[in-house]
Nucleic acid binder design. Structure first.
Lengths: 165, 165
DNA sequence: AAATTTATGTCAACAAGACTGACATATCTT
DNA sequence: AAGATATGTCAGTCTTGTTGACATAAATTT
């Protein structure tokens, strides 16, 4: 935290002065992440708008499709939201026939989640434009550099401290 | 809304069946984008929580720092939100002394936006953990693949149809 | 000069999706 | 039998997005 800039009180807030550590900060990638994510979620948003669902529903349908049989607790861990937040959208998806619950065979307190056919259809419809966008973006990357994208994105995730945390 | 699933009443919804086009859809990158962005914004969120600001304030402070002198209209184009949404957070940032406005020298209707020293400090404090996360992620990418990341992220953006749209 | 357009601000109402806190129920574990 | 765990639910709050309507000042057009 070297805020040396405040020390030199000579100029009274010169307008054009930039940040001190500008050189060391990767503003460009920060912005690219913002813009790319903003546009990445805009595709499904348009589809969801017509069905009365939102982004939260999208996430639930996506992950239940990706891992059929996952429990409510699994989903909470994945989404990093509270159970009250999840409950609202999950209930709507169950009532609308996109997802159904089955009591766990071992532990009957658990509710294992499965997509219905409508749920699979919806997940696919939402993933399609996103996948097309990803394919388009990869076309601009030289083939030998493409594996780096996945490595980078994976490296951006928090490392799971499985427990003891 | 083709709810064909109800038509074929043969199988009573086999539980484990996955999506039809699973092969053609890049679910892996879709998820990596979700997880990486989720964790990417968690760093500044923690800092913002203590100052009473939110993500919306972060974006404004960031872009005004990146392009001092930008107008309100510029900011609206960048953020893709309504002026009423922007007004709320912008007013708070001005009242709190993080951003100030100057009437445009050519067009005096415009309000050119500049960060104060506090605004620059805040932008830097928020960018630092994000930049460190990005640096960590790049370490896992072979150097010759690194330029591909920027190309990919840029390719994910919507193409500006400057006007005529 | 008058009319219109543009840039910005503001009031009011609403919605999605996150949060906290409290409490209920069924089931598993000790 | 007692306690812990997985899930559900009620109720209220906050942030951040939306729409619609209207106000003001300054620039542009007629």
């Amino acid at each position: 935290m070297s805020r040396q800039s405040q020390a030199k009180a000579a100029k009274p807030e010169s307008l054009e002065t930039a940040l001190g550590n500008t050189e060391t900060i990767d503003f460009e990638i920060i912005e690219l992440l913002f813009f790319s994510y903003r546009d990445f979620v805009s595709d499904p948003d348009a589809i969801l708008a017509s069905s009365g669902f939102g982004r939260a529903h999208h996430r639930v349908v996506h992950f239940v499709n990706r891992e059929p049989g996952m429990t409510v607790a699994d989903l909470l861990d994945t989404l990093n939201i509270t159970k009250q937040s999840l409950a609202r959208v999950l209930k709507q998806l169950i009532d609308s026939g996109y997802i159904r619950q089955v009591a766990g065979p071992e532990d009957r307190r658990q509710r294992k989640l499965y997509p219905t056919q409508a749920g699979r259809d919806l997940a696919l419809a939402l993933a399609e434009p996103q996948s097309r966008r990803i394919a388009r973006a990869f076309e601009k990357v030289p083939p030998e550099m493409r594996p780096g994208v996945k490595l980078f994105l994976d490296g951006m995730r928090d490392r799971k401290t499985s427990e003891a945390g």
